[in-house]
Amino acid sequence: MSLLDRELSGVVMTPDNIRTKKLSLVANLGVAVAALLVSAALVLGLGIGNWVLVVVLGWALYLVGLLYVAGRVEGRRAARNRAWKSLIYSACILAILPLASVVWTLVSKGVGRLDGDFFGTSMNNIGARDQNGGAYHAIIGTLEQVGIAALIAVPLGVLGAIYLVEYGRGKFAGTVRFFVDVMTGIPSIVAGLFILSFWVLIVSPWFNDGQPRFSGFAASLALSVLMLPTIVRSTEEMLRLVPGPLREGAYALGVPQWKTILKIVVPTALPGIVTGVMLAIARAAGETAPVLLVAGGAAAINFDPFNGNQSSLALYVYQQAGDASKYAPARAWTAALTLVTIVLILTIAAKMLARRNSLTR
């Protein structure tokens, strides 16, 4: 029965009615194995490379072989589709491999000092031959500095994005966008130098009998400068994705603009806003130069972010990685693992809080 006859007779075409040849999984695996064998024979037999070249050449031969075999079995169109699908899967694997390698290296080398001494002590009075010493002071410094920076940058960034999306018109809004774009690309050391020249050398002497003073709060100011453009840009993009009919429906009901933004627009864009905020926090938590310039770093515990030198996990990793002690690399790897874990925990907690919003379900 032809297709026209099926249509006239009322027969509905379903996947059960259609029979096309499909390349079996065994044939697909056979092409892959044959490609690897040929590649190994060429590369290792001629001595022109190692297993990396074997994999790369085998992957190229696999695509060629798959295109040929699938073309003979399924046809040209299905063969091209299968080849492009293999390319996409290969690109995904290539993108995941570096991340998996970094995670594996971090975990395998960072578990060596996961003990109570590392999380309960500082580096105060720890010599080069002492295998003890921890990062308690650096953990406290990171949490305080990033927390204060978030308290400064998040409200300013979100409010700035709301202005640009909902109210910003004319040259002033264009100027704000231009400077936000410029600030996005500034190096972290420039932010540290700015806070050093302004806060540490000019403002802090007013509160310290005319003497400049390093502090964790100065590091928070530098980190907030780095966080602000990321929060503004990401929040602006998320607010622009909110459908216009949501705003129009609220306006039609007589809801003021400020209340529409507060009750409709921001809750709808909240998951994306949280993602941008966490990206900014992750960047701030990993910065070393601003903390070194304006907080100075310290081996002892300092709970006061407004008075005295203070360290951070990123600075601690930098210092331990360059230390001559044979026990320092283990501390550096564990501190790096701790920093990644803290950022991961904060991200998960923020995502869970954002999902509780009823408008985003």
Rank of each mutant, 00 (worst) to 15 (best):
V203M: 05
V158G: 01
V64Y: 11
M352H: 05
M13I: 15
G75P: 02
A153W: 03
P229E: 08
V180I: 15
L193M: 13
F207P: 04
A153Q: 03
G112I: 15
T235F: 05
A173D: 02
Q320F: 06
L8V: 14
T14I: 12
I231F: 09
A280H: 07
P267C: 10
F179Q: 00
L164T: 07
P267F: 09
A95R: 02
L8D: 11
N357E: 12
G116M: 12
G244A: 15
A324N: 08
I93H: 00
A70V: 11
R169K: 14
V73F: 00
M183S: 11
Q211K: 15
A60K: 09
Y89P: 00
A289W: 08
N81D: 14
I281L: 14
K109C: 03
G147I: 14
L196R: 05
V255A: 07
I48C: 02
V277L: 06
T260R: 08
G49I: 10
I231S: 03
G170H: 05
I281W: 07
Y68E: 11
I195W: 04
A32P: 08
F217H: 04
V154Y: 01
S220Y: 04
G276D: 11
A284W: 07
A324Q: 13
P205N: 10
L67Q: 12
L53N: 01
A149E: 06
V102I: 14
K263L: 11
V52I: 13
A222M: 03
L53R: 05
K351H: 12
T14A: 06
D323M: 03
I281K: 07
A150Y: 05
A91S: 14
G297F: 00
I301G: 00
V165A: 08
A280F: 07
L201K: 09
E7W: 13
A295W: 00
L57Q: 01
R283W: 11
T20H: 10
A219I: 03
Q257A: 13
V111L: 15
L344F: 15
Y89M: 04
Y136M: 14
I186D: 00
L63D: 08
A83S: 13
Y251P: 02
R247K: 14
V255N: 04
I281P: 04
A79Q: 09
I152K: 03
Y89F: 11
G286C: 11
V43I: 15
F178Y: 03
V232K: 08
A328R: 02
E248F: 09
R233Q: 10
L143Y: 01
S9N: 14
A79R: 07
I261W: 06
P256L: 01
V43T: 06
